[in-house]
Design a protein around this nucleic acid. Structure first.
Lengths: 119, 119
DNA sequence: CGGCATCCGCCAAGATACTG
DNA sequence: CAGTATCTTGGCGGATGCCG
């Protein structure tokens, strides 16, 4: 019985997920959308660190991957709302875990970063 | 009763985790180490896409964050072994979920990527 | 309000070669 | 086998401004 013929098939699932969540603000965007912050202007306000352009780019990518859906209301002023798709919902557990892990280890991480910048 | 004074405290846990897992090969490295592929040369072979240099850089960062431990055997030829720390163990659930999610949605993702490159 | 065009700086990551 | 030094690059993300 062969345990594992090929040591690592590059553990490709990780790369796949990375492809989807890889953008700097994508996790935050998904997180925000779930919480009901689902309009572009709201998202901009919720994520002050990112510019309109970047958020748009990343939103489009998320949309291309079928993770979020974009609803356009043809009116003036224009109105757009994002929502998680079924597939997007399946990402929630991961995001939640990432968030709580980060919270739990925040002091550790901050310490290391502070330490690092001393050099 | 104020529901949420500040809409998003930038959902900082996500950024923390990102800081630790952000490198291109870090998830793969952790995954491999858990599976017993814990020596530099082994890791290089298991992850053909990355160069020695990059792997070293990312391994060092993981070590700085206290996620992996580095054991050096002072002998010739030199021998080094990495292992997950307690903290590192707590990352496993996340990595596993990311991996399985990627596997489950591999065809979707590959399709989108193929589509994208047509333009 | 939502979206896009343009320009630019930076840094993570690739390529290569050398030392112990 | 493990690690480092040097050089280069691609592209992601930041900044700004214009348009419907």
């Amino acid at each position: 019985m062969y345990e594992k013929k090929i040591p690592l098939p590059l553990e490709c699932g990780l790369m796949m997920t990375r492809e989807v969540l890889g953008g700097k603000w994508k996790p935050n965007l998904l997180f925000a959308i779930v919480e009901g912050i689902n309009r572009p202007s709201q998202l901009q306000r919720a994520i002050p660190g990112a510019t309109k352009r970047v958020l748009n780019l990343q939103l489009r990518e998320l949309e291309e991957f079928g993770v979020i859906a974009k609803k356009i209301y043809p009116q003036l002023p224009p109105r757009v709302e994002y929502s998680l798709t079924e597939v997007g919902q399946t990402l929630l557990p991961i995001l939640l875990q990432m968030n709580t892990w980060g919270e739990q280890n925040r002091t550790l991480i901050e310490t290391v970063i502070a330490e690092r910048s001393k050099r």
